[in-house]
Amino acid sequence: MATIVAGTDADTNRARALAEGIVTIPGTDDLEAILVHVFDENPDDADVEQVASVRRAREILEDHGVEVTLEGTSGDAAPELIDTADDHDAEMIAVAGRKRSPTGKAIFGSVTQDVVLGTDRPVLVCSAERR
Rank of each mutant, 00 (worst) to 15 (best):
D86R: 07
T84Y: 02
N42E: 05
I107A: 10
P102C: 09
P79Y: 08
I107E: 10
E49S: 15
K105N: 06
L31P: 07
I107C: 05
T119L: 11
V68I: 01
D47V: 14
L61K: 03
Q50L: 08
D86N: 12
I60K: 05
A94Q: 02
G104R: 14
L117W: 04
R14L: 03
P122S: 05
D11K: 07
G109I: 07
V116C: 04
D9S: 11
G27L: 00
V68G: 07
L31N: 08
A96V: 09
V123Q: 07
A57K: 05
T8H: 06
A78K: 06
G104H: 14
H37F: 15
S101H: 11
D63E: 13
L61N: 04
H88C: 08
A15V: 12
V51I: 15
T112Y: 06
V125S: 11
G21I: 04
G97P: 07
P122L: 03
I93H: 02
D114V: 06
L31F: 08
M92G: 01
Q113C: 00
D86V: 02
Q50E: 15
L70D: 01
D44L: 14
E129H: 11
H37Y: 15
T73Q: 06
T69R: 15
Q113K: 09
H64Q: 01
Q113S: 12
D86C: 01
R16S: 08
D83W: 06
D120T: 08
A15S: 13
I22H: 04
D86A: 08
E59M: 08
A106C: 05
H37R: 13
G109E: 11
N42D: 12
S127T: 15
A33R: 01
L117H: 11
T112H: 04
E129N: 08
Q50Y: 09
V111F: 03
G27R: 00
H88G: 04
T3Y: 07
S110E: 07
A52D: 12
G118V: 13
D86M: 01
R130Y: 09
C126P: 09
D114C: 04
E129A: 13
P26V: 04
V38T: 14
Q50S: 14
R14A: 06
E20D: 09
L81M: 09
V5F: 00
V123N: 10
T28I: 10
D89M: 06
G97D: 10
V115T: 05
R14M: 02
V111N: 05
G109F: 01
I60C: 03
S110P: 08
I4Q: 00
E80I: 01
G7C: 11
G97H: 07
L35Y: 04
P102G: 11
V95R: 01
V5A: 03
V116D: 02
T28A: 03
T119Q: 12
